[in-house]
Amino acid sequence: MRKTVTASVLALTVVALTPGYAVPAKATGTARAVGVVAASSGTCASGELCLWPKEGYKGAKQTYELAGIDIESCVPLPAGTSAQALANRTGRPVTTYQSAECAETGEFETYPGSGTWLPKSPYRVRAFKVWES
């Protein structure tokens, strides 16, 4: 059992340190259970979308709850801000955009709402949309 847990933790640590890799919530929970901090060193409650200005979940976190978001509407981040890391715990898919207007001419990516942790976005996130499941 100990070898299995150690091997699992090592595999999670390698995956967690891989740039741009979204670690599933179950994986981070497993790592925490054995005392290892995986990719999700920030905190983000169930039902929230959390955005950090610096990669690795650093800086002042912005938190959005479904109750305060219009579904399928573009939500720009406050002027002059952007995000480099995110956690999607909304239970719904979320698309992040490089453009503050959710324009698809820039970079964009959709993340599942089942517990996606992204320590390093491939672009600066300036807006997002939350979708119906």
Rank of each mutant, 00 (worst) to 15 (best):
E48M: 07
S41L: 12
S40R: 12
A38W: 01
G68P: 08
L51C: 09
A38M: 01
P119T: 04
V5E: 06
P76Y: 01
G80H: 04
K58E: 15
I71S: 08
T90D: 09
L66K: 06
A22K: 00
T96G: 06
R89K: 03
A127R: 03
A103M: 13
K61L: 07
R124T: 08
A79Y: 03
V15A: 07
A45P: 09
D70S: 09
L49P: 07
S46K: 13
V34N: 08
A83K: 07
E55C: 10
I71N: 10
R126M: 11
L49M: 02
A83C: 02
Y21F: 14
T90E: 12
E109M: 06
T96C: 11
V15E: 02
P93F: 01
P112Q: 15
T105Q: 06
Q98F: 05
G35M: 02
A25P: 05
S73K: 11
Y123A: 04
Y21V: 13
T116E: 13
S121A: 15
K3M: 14
M1E: 14
P19Y: 11
T63A: 09
L51K: 01
K3D: 15
R32M: 00
V14S: 02
T6M: 11
S8C: 10
V15K: 07
S46L: 13
T81R: 07
K3Y: 14
R89P: 00
K129E: 09
S41C: 15
L51S: 10
E101T: 11
Q98R: 12
V34H: 14
T4D: 14
V23H: 04
E48H: 15
V37A: 11
V36S: 05
T116F: 12
P78E: 09
K61W: 00
Y57S: 01
S82H: 02
K129Y: 13
L49G: 00
A25H: 11
T13C: 00
T30M: 08
Y21Q: 09
C50A: 03
A67V: 05
A7C: 10
V15C: 06
K54Y: 01
G68V: 12
A103G: 14
G35T: 04
T30K: 02
E55H: 04
L77R: 00
R126E: 13
G91K: 07
A60Q: 14
T96S: 06
Q84I: 01
S121V: 08
G113R: 04
R32V: 00
Y64M: 12
T13K: 06
V75P: 07
V15R: 04
P76N: 02
T30N: 05
L86W: 05
S82E: 07
T28E: 14
R2Q: 15
A79C: 04
E107L: 10
T81H: 08
P93V: 05
A87R: 08
G106M: 10
K3E: 14
A33P: 07
E132R: 15
S8D: 10
T6K: 12
A87H: 07
G29I: 12
A38N: 08
E104Q: 15
Y97P: 01
D70W: 09
T81M: 11
C102G: 06
N88H: 05
G115N: 00
F108N: 04
V37Y: 06
K129V: 11
M1A: 12
T4A: 15
L86E: 02
V23R: 06
M1R: 14
V130I: 07
R126V: 04
V15G: 00
A83R: 01
